[in-house]
Nucleic acid binder design. Structure first.
Lengths: 98, 98
DNA sequence: CCTTTAGTTAGACAGTTGACTAACTATCGA
DNA sequence: TCGATAGTTAGTCAACTGTCTAACTAAAGG
């Protein structure tokens, strides 16, 4: 698990928004480019997709002219585990707040 | 909650190592500087402490000549919530793997 | 084939980051 | 008050990041 790539990927607000848009299901590059609030160019978006793929946070598949991106849900638990390992160890747990 | 500051703070391996060292309890700036594997200078470490404080990931307190840093454990749940919100929504939960 | 549409790759450029050395501030102890 | 110790602040610099435009690749449809 590449913690460095994952956190660097998450450190950009546009990329976090892409991930949020993908929570409901896969979406094409063009659709994501239209919906992202920062309204960056297609090449910039393409770059962000590459970073997210490098971090293994999304997968892609081509269908005709379009490329569909989707959350790589298998990485979710890994990420949570890393954060937990970074911040929540060392002492017995506090009372969980639900 | 400043997601951007938090993720930028977590995107550096030295800072993640600082957080890991702090899991067992508070530690002085000097002690952290000695123990960090990248062996960077004191000013560089001071910079990292500032970034971590800005992200509200650590707290500090002076005791005599030394400054003790500690994990801000109250932010842990917030961070986990952000990650969960970014990556784990949109569909009914899978079977939790415990 | 040629054109259109969808997306990526290449290259440039400003802004940010992480590192260093040098100098400064703060506290302790004699 | 002087010197030593612990950290921070200031200033510099190379490397990295995010953005853009221009040019390229891939597929569809006539």
């Amino acid at each position: 698990m590449h913690a460095n790539e994952v956190f660097k990927a998450l450190a950009d607000p546009t990329r976090r928004e892409i991930l949020q848009l993908l929570r409901r299901g896969e979406m094409t590059a063009g659709e994501l480019t239209e919906r992202v609030s920062s309204r960056v160019s297609k090449p910039s978006m393409s770059h962000h997709f590459a970073v997210l793929k490098e971090a293994d946070l999304v997968t892609s598949r081509r269908e005709g002219q379009q490329i569909f991106y989707a959350l790589n849900t298998t990485v979710v638990e890994d990420v949570l585990t890393i954060i937990w390992g970074l911040l929540a160890d060392g002492r017995p747990n506090e009372e969980p707040k639900t």
